[in-house]
């Protein structure tokens, strides 16, 4: 075995590890946001543009932690109404079965498609990639990588935008 082939095999074996290290080091998901200049019927102000993206991404963090720790109270900060009810139901189901699921979002491709005339709801589409890991009574069942599209409707509250509708699928 030549030194070159040894090095090649070593590097090949290290590829998944390096990739994992790279991703975990990155931590935050990559985010692409489509321009919002042509969103209608209401124009999206600059401050709204940044807060909607910030609050939506925070909602993903809240959901991931809430489903991972089976704590519906963690949804309060980012979800309201229908979306909160449905996620809370799922957490109750998970808890009763002894199951936990961890959602780690890796990338978001966001497009705001509707901002209502009176400014009370904003809708965005998100082509998202995430890993979902499932544990049954603490033991890992498996992990799958998912790429799908989410539709989210956010409404303003006292201090932030909260997710009212949160649904994946095309």
């Amino acid at each position: 075995m030549t030194p070159t082939s040894v090095a090649r095999k070593t590097l090949l074996a290290a590829v998944p590890l390096l990739a994992a290290l790279f991703l975990s080091a990155a931590g935050q998901p990559t985010v692409h946001v489509a321009p919002m200049d042509s969103v209608g019927p209401r124009p999206v102000e600059q401050q709204t543009r940044s807060s909607i993206v910030r609050d939506y991404l925070q909602a993903w963090q809240s959901m991931g932690t809430a489903l991972g720790e089976n704590r519906p109270d963690l949804l309060d900060a980012s979800f309201v109404g229908l979306a909160k009810d449905k996620l809370a139901d799922t957490i109750r189901e998970q808890r009763s079965l002894g199951i936990a699921s961890s959602y780690r979002d890796q990338s978001h491709d966001l497009q705001v498609v509707f901002y209502s005339p009176e400014g009370l709801s904003i809708q965005l589409l998100d082509t998202v990639e995430y890993d979902v890991e499932v544990r049954d009574h603490g033991k890992t069942v498996g992990t799958q990588h998912v790429r799908t599209r989410y539709v989210a409707v956010l409404t303003p509250t006292e201090s932030r935008w909260k997710v009212r509708v949160f649904q994946s699928g095309s």
Binding site: L11, V15, P16, L18, A19, F22, L23, Q106, S107, E129, D131, T143, Q144, H145, V146, R147
Partner: peptide
């Protein structure tokens, strides 16, 4: 190959 795996995180999962 390394770059592809690193920059396309879904590859292994798919």
């Amino acid at each position: 190959a390394l770059i592809v795996v690193v920059t396309v995180p879904g590859l292994a999962g798919h």
